[in-house]
């Protein structure tokens, strides 16, 4: 099956090769977990490794912030824009939605002109400003995502999670609308904060079910090995598994 590779070390393996083409892929996490970095890396790798031009659609975050953040990883977004292989568009949720609904809107025109194949929408949470009615919100999200698919785009959509540690308590209707769902979480282990990544869902394909550690390095996100010997990772405060507790208590002698 054809895949849209993220080019992110360790993530494509978890996704059994990458996202499926023309799908909407949600990345949810607390502030600072790396949602936008993951999305920018998906776009940057698409352009530079796989010759797939991309669009970044931002609601309220200024494009110059993306240029700066990308430059910190050595990704020259301004140069890619000059080459016509990237566009960082800022608009509001209401204008973005209306634009996508229109024939010949800005996003449709740019997609056709650039031959764009990928899009990062940062963040989908802003669509929640358009209505207080959950049924209407789901319809808006569904229509928005379908419009991106109509344009032949494979989308990474970020979503903010209010909880810093552990699972956020909210109605996640968006989880039913998207094709894949990646969770990024902070995890506290022995008084240090680590980051965890879990592929919760990948419609139409198998995927890794384990919870992996990841780091944001100078070159972007790197997904590493799974958390060993811990339980309750997604709670944010994992404990040692029973076997590891036994080993630590009776087998390994801790150095004083």
């Amino acid at each position: 099956m054809q895949r849209v590779k993220t080019g992110i070390k360790g993530l494509d393996e978890m996704l059994h090769g990458g996202f499926l083409p023309q799908t909407a892929n949600l990345v949810e996490g607390a502030p600072g977990t790396g949602k936008t970095t993951l999305g920018m890396q998906f776009i940057y790798n698409g352009i530079t490794l796989y010759d797939e031009p991309g669009i970044i659609l931002t609601f309220e975050e200024f494009p110059q912030q993306y240029y700066r953040d990308a430059a910190a990883f050595g990704w020259d977004f301004k140069a890619l824009e000059r080459e016509g292989r990237l566009k960082v568009i800022m608009t509001s949720p209401e204008v973005g939605r209306l634009d996508l609904e229109q024939v010949g809107g800005m996003i449709e025109t740019l997609t056709n002109e650039m031959g764009a194949r990928r899009i990062l929408v940062d963040s989908l949470s802003h669509l929640e400003k358009l209505t207080d009615d959950p049924v209407e919100l789901r319809a808006i999200q569904y229509s928005f995502i379908n419009a991106l698919k109509r344009e032949g785009l494979t989308a990474v959509l970020t979503k903010e999670s209010p909880a810093l540690l552990g699972a956020a308590e909210s109605e996640e209707s968006i989880a039913f609308v998207v094709d894949s769902y990646i969770l990024l979480r902070y995890v506290e282990i022995e008084s240090a904060i680590h980051k965890a990544l879990l592929v919760l869902k990948l419609r139409g394909s198998d995927h890794a079910k384990d919870i992996r550690q990841f780091e944001i390095t100078s070159g972007g996100i790197e997904v590493q090995a799974k958390f060993e010997g811990r339980e309750g990772i997604m709670s944010g405060s994992p404990r040692l598994s029973m076997a590891d507790s036994f080993v630590r208590a009776f087998v390994k002698k801790e150095k004083p």
Binding site: F62, P63, I89, T91
Partner: peptide, 16 residues
């Protein structure tokens, strides 16, 4: 110039 692909309503531009 700094955000060249911005497209928005007057209300949002004023806020920016």
């Amino acid at each position: 110039h700094e955000n060249p692909n911005t497209a928005d309503t007057v209300e949002n531009i004023a806020r920016y």
